[in-house]
Computed example of a mutant assay.
Amino acid sequence: GIGVVKAFAREPHEFDKFDRDNDKWFTMRYKAIHMWADYWPFFTFVLALCILLLLWFGGPQAIAGEITVGSLFALISYVLMLNAPVLHMGFVVNLAATAGASASRVFEIIDTPNEIVEASDAMELVDPRGEVRFEHVSFTYGQGRSILHEVNFVARPGQVVALIGPTGSGKSTITNLIPRFYDPTAGRVLVDSMDIRQLRLKSLRSHIGIVLQEPFLFNGTIAENIAYGRPDAPQERIVAAARAARAHDFIESFPEGYQTKVGERGVTLSGGQKQRIAIARALLYNPRILILDDSTSSVDTETEHIIQQALAVLMEGRTTFVIAQRLLTLKNADQILVLDHGRIIERGTHEELLALGGHYRTIYDLQLRDQEEFLALQNGNGVMCDA
């Protein structure tokens, strides 16, 4: 957030916030040190009191010969030997309290029940064709508002299904239900006519690849990130996936090539470079079902063209779900689903939806109509000039 702070000239505010938090921590730490400062002299006083009592009662007895002087000094030595363990026990109690507070937070996460429970008789998904079917699917996040309402559609093997709609219409929720990140509140999701709740999670997800709008890269090398889904993949396959994703050239431009460290979240790479590495990762994973979540929305036109070429290779022969706001990205889809408030309000191909004259047509008129009419006019002028 450093860039945002500088852009809005909020450095004084952030310094003040840091000072307040620092003062709060200092106050609590000071109280703890003050408590130790009180107890430390108290321990010393108790020790001195014990020695005083031993001398007070044991001294006369040693003078009278009832006990030996050696026995008296032995008792004093035993008391002095207790000093260090007692003080150490105080440190241990303090550390135990700190560790207990930390452990409670850790175990709170560890003990959080898994929302997705695998059935005891779950089956393996072997060599799927890639058909995905939603039957009367509804979904609600927790006790909040309903996100999806009675969603029904079928994606045939190898088809490209595009999802379009305003923010909050349920596009990402639909794609999150396919790898079973969540379970539908009602209805069911089927892959090759099998309810995904009856499939092993690892088996299901091993056939699904996802390329997100903001791809996540781990703090490792480029090769490690590409091979994340297939860690045993040989270098030749990693390079082949990078070539197909149009990433090989820029990777080779780095001094260390595929062994270049990308930093936390891929901080050393541009958005387009991270996107192409994510596509290469999906290519190497070789899924049967592919989910593309607005993969070109945050890049420039030239980079988008390169990514579109890489995506065309990635989508070939796979059942693909594409979330996009640009019609140019999804106009060639086999099936376009227009969502609004969690419902499919229109469905069909690009031409069918234009002929319908509904919500999709409105989006088309805003985004593409003028551009396509201009291109058609240019083509027409070119033909006339040739004549």
Rank of each mutant, 00 (worst) to 15 (best):
D293L: 04
D293Q: 13
F321H: 03
A324L: 02
A312D: 15
Y258C: 07
L311F: 00
L269T: 04
G272Q: 02
Q259V: 06
Q308Y: 02
T260K: 10
V322R: 01
I323P: 07
Q308L: 06
E304V: 03
A324F: 02
A310G: 09
D294K: 12
D293W: 03
A310D: 05
Q275E: 10
L311V: 00
I291D: 04
R318K: 13
A282M: 01
G317A: 03
Q309M: 12
S270I: 11
I306C: 10
E264M: 07
S270G: 11
R288D: 11
S297E: 03
T319Q: 07
T301V: 15
G272L: 08
K261C: 09
S295T: 15
H305M: 06
S295A: 15
E264N: 14
A282T: 01
I323L: 06
R288G: 09
E264K: 14
L283C: 03
E302I: 13
A280F: 09
N286P: 07
D300S: 12
L311D: 00
S298I: 00
T320N: 05
T301C: 04
T296C: 10
V322I: 15
R265Y: 09
E304P: 05
R288V: 11
Q308A: 05
I307A: 01
A324Q: 01
I291N: 01
E302N: 12
E316G: 08
K261Y: 13
V322S: 08
F321Y: 05
G266R: 06
S297Q: 02
T260D: 06
D293R: 00
G257S: 13
Q309K: 15
Q259L: 05
H305E: 14
V322L: 14
I289V: 15
I291Q: 03
A278R: 05
R288Y: 04
G271I: 00
Q325R: 12
E264W: 09
Q325D: 00
T303E: 12
R318N: 00
G272Y: 03
A282W: 01
L314N: 03
Q259T: 10
D293T: 06
G263R: 09
Q325K: 04
A280W: 02
I291S: 01
L269M: 11
Q259R: 12
S295Y: 01
V299Q: 14
V299E: 08
V262D: 11
I279A: 06
Q309A: 13
G271T: 01
L283P: 02
Y258E: 08
H305G: 11
R281E: 06
L290V: 02
Q273L: 03
G317N: 07
S295M: 03
P287W: 11
M315G: 02
L292E: 09
A324W: 04
I307K: 07
D293P: 09
R281I: 05
D294E: 15
L284K: 07
V299K: 13
I289D: 00
I306Q: 15
I279E: 09
G271L: 04
S298P: 02
K261W: 08
T268E: 09
G272T: 02
I307H: 00
G257A: 05
L292Q: 05
Q275C: 01
S297W: 03
T319L: 11
T296Q: 05
V262G: 14
S298K: 01
E302H: 14
Y285A: 13
Q273A: 10
P287M: 12
S270C: 12
R318P: 03
S270F: 10
Q259K: 09
I291F: 02
P287D: 09
R265E: 15
V267L: 14
V322Y: 06
Q275W: 03
R288M: 06
Q273K: 01
